Amino acid sequence: MDTVSANVAPTRSGKSAADARRDARAFLDGLLPPVTSEAAGTVLLVVSELVTNALRHAGGTWSLELTAHPDGIEVAVHDASPQPPRLRTPDLNGGTGGFGWPLVNRLARTTAVSPGPSGGKTVSALLSRW
């Protein structure tokens, strides 16, 4: 089989980016052949950033979908906001962020934002498996 897919159940706003990382780690641990530790770290970082963005900017309700392809791992986060992520000047002093979306774009081979069926959006990133 060339593609392994797993959907992580939608999570309510009471859950955290740490929960998403735990679910992603369990997904990665089940893949054969296994991903490299560097690729796994990249996937976990992107999951954390996209879920944190959903928590902070999209009302806090999100779901995570992970798909393993022969040469990559796709991370997709669905949230209720129709507003796409935007680049902004990182805040070096006030702690208001601005680092996550540029980081995701730098780590991913491709990123995409598409409208969700209920008015929200899906933000996805394709990451190297090796």
Rank of each mutant, 00 (worst) to 15 (best):
N105F: 00
L103H: 04
L103K: 01
P102F: 06
T89N: 07
W101I: 15
A108I: 03
P115N: 11
L87A: 08
G94A: 15
T96S: 14
A112M: 06
T89P: 01
G95A: 12
L103Y: 04
R88M: 14
G95E: 09
T89V: 15
P115Q: 08
L87R: 04
G94I: 05
A112D: 10
F99Y: 15
G98Y: 03
T111N: 10
F99A: 10
G100F: 02
T111W: 02
T96C: 05
L87F: 08
A112W: 00
A112Y: 03
R109W: 05
R109S: 13
T111Y: 01
R106Q: 13
T89D: 14
T110S: 15
G100E: 04
A112P: 01
G98P: 02
W101A: 12
R106N: 09
A112I: 07
N93C: 12
G98E: 08
R106S: 14
T111L: 07
P90I: 09
W101L: 15
F99G: 11
G95T: 12
T111K: 02
V113T: 13
G98K: 01
V104L: 03
L87D: 13
W101Q: 12
A108E: 04
W101K: 06
R88S: 14
L107G: 02
L92Q: 09
S114D: 12
G98D: 10
L103F: 05
T89R: 06
F99T: 15
G94F: 00
S114P: 05
L92T: 15
G94P: 01
T110E: 14
A112N: 08
D91Y: 01
G95W: 02
R109F: 04
G95F: 04
P102W: 00
R109M: 09
N93V: 14
P102V: 10
T110C: 04
A108L: 03
N105A: 11
G95Y: 08
A112L: 08
D91W: 02
N93F: 11
P102C: 13
D91L: 05
